[in-house]
Write a protein that binds this DNA or RNA. Structure first.
Lengths: 267, 267
DNA sequence: TCTTGTCGTGTTATCATACAACCCTGATTT
DNA sequence: AAATCAGGGTTGTATGATAACACGACAAGA
């Protein structure tokens, strides 16, 4: 077993580098589930760091469920299904196809959340949504306050599903999507957009208030399709469309991001 | 700031206990975003462990995005949105309502995954699904081999969506659900169930093969409703039912499915 | 032959200490 | 007044030692 473990170059937190290096070994299959890792001492000398650093790295991997260790035996690669946490690689999201996939997943969750919200919303939920909309109306388009109100609106919708996991997942996915959009920095602003976006939200709220399940789904789908355009995703590829139950087995038109998600990662 | 930090009782991995203790402080709001944590030395004496253990705990929390630290300054609680991982508390899942919520979320993802799979599946996908079904057919109901084939079938469906995040999320959620079911240990086995469950899977595959989006959704919904019953969830509460989109103007009534699911929508 | 108990070795878990790198503050110097 | 520097406090890393545990080898006894 010749693991390809490079000496680690200085950076932020040696343990982070060691952890991701080991993580890569696992992801790329050089370390398979059940395999025993080299001893801490061996890893320490291999990476050229202290055993302490190795232990911090291992503690991290263990908390992620990627490996497990037992005193006196050693550390072993865990089964993939044992992953106890869900992570989304930031760098991977810079790739257009990854971003589109995550956007699609978000769309699915948002649309179904809207449906559930239309069924289960309470008066308090509706008030909260209305307040969030007022916040958007009051703030200039694209401003920090506007964005906060936007997030707040979607959060209240998720909360109205009365399913905490829905809120948790949606918040997680949305935040990753938002980060990626900000990193790309290509959202276009115009005066029209404020009105359009606001209108989309209002229709969602109206449908949810009316308890109109289909309407809420459709309104949310519209909103996400609009958001996709605004972010530079072509409509045909947007999430909202792909989950709408209509045409059968249409060939997937390959997408093109406008200058969208080009990397500007470190450097 | 009087943090309620109990001395840690011996158990599996001190760093784990320290980490979850700090985590709890954050979750319960005694440590708010921006707050500075006590120094490592202080935490070490507070918990009655060595500074090394505290560092492993902090390394873990940092990797989860819950805190950030800077050399020479200290460690600080991060904003909630910065959480880079999504976790599901195992204990919380023992509560019935939490379990039902997670099951509902899983249902949403599975149903929409089936829809996407019906659109995008390749020949290879269909072959893989068929193989998984054969595996189920060959194995005794409830056996390890059977369960593995079951998981494999759902995995292939997720893969056929051509959306890696869908697979990732679904695998994560399903695994948590499965764990919880096993822990409860209340799944009932009978000879009929093998046939029924197999039939449900076959209908899903048939719809996906035919590229029938609605049919795939409906079949998957049926399957999940059945699974919910088998696991002891009341039908009315099952996930699959609550996301049913009430046939959006579809001329094609393709369901020759049992209508068990369709009674009792929210009224 | 089979079982059992002991021991030695290797590994992880934890502790303790020391030093380096860095931040912050405040006094000193220019 | 501004720049510089010294000092203490904090995290980051290194190193060595000890305890707890797993595992195989090996001998003693049945």
């Amino acid at each position: 077993m010749t693991l390809k473990l490079d000496k680690v170059n200085r950076g932020p937190h040696l343990s982070t580098l060691v952890a991701s290096s080991i993580s890569r070994e696992i992801a790329q299959g050089r370390l398979k589930p059940g395999d025993q890792l080299p001893t801490e001492q061996a890893l320490a000398t291999t990476f050229g760091v202290s055993r302490n650093v190795v232990r911090e790295a291992i503690a991290r991997l263990r908390s992620e469920g990627r490996i497990w260790s037992q005193q006196g035996r050693g550390a072993f690669v865990a089964d993939a299904t044992n992953a106890t946490v869900l992570t989304i690689d930031y760098d991977a999201l810079q790739r257009a196809d990854s971003f589109r996939n995550l956007f699609e997943l978000r769309g699915i969750l948002e649309v179904q959340a809207a449906a559930l919200a239309a069924k289960r919303r309470t008066k308090a939920d509706l008030t909260a949504m209305t307040n969030a909309l007022s916040g958007m109306r009051a703030a200039p388009y694209g401003s920090v306050a506007w964005l906060r109100s936007d997030l707040e609106f979607h959060r209240t919708v998720a909360e109205a599903t009365r399913n905490s996991y829905m809120g948790q997942f949606l918040a997680f996915v949305s935040e990753r999507v938002r980060e990626s959009i900000l990193a790309a920095g290509n959202q276009q602003k115009s005066d029209d957009m404020a009105r359009i976006t606001l209108g989309e939200h209002e229709r969602i709220l109206a449908a949810i208030r009316a308890g109109d399940v289909e309407g809420a789904q459709a309104a949310m789908r519209d909103h996400l399709a609009g958001a996709a355009l605004r972010v530079g995703l072509h409509e045909g590829e947007a999430a909202a469309e792909s989950v709408s139950p209509q045409e059968v087995a249409s060939p997937v038109r390959h997408s093109r991001l406008r200058k969208a998600v080009r990397n500007r990662t470190a450097g």
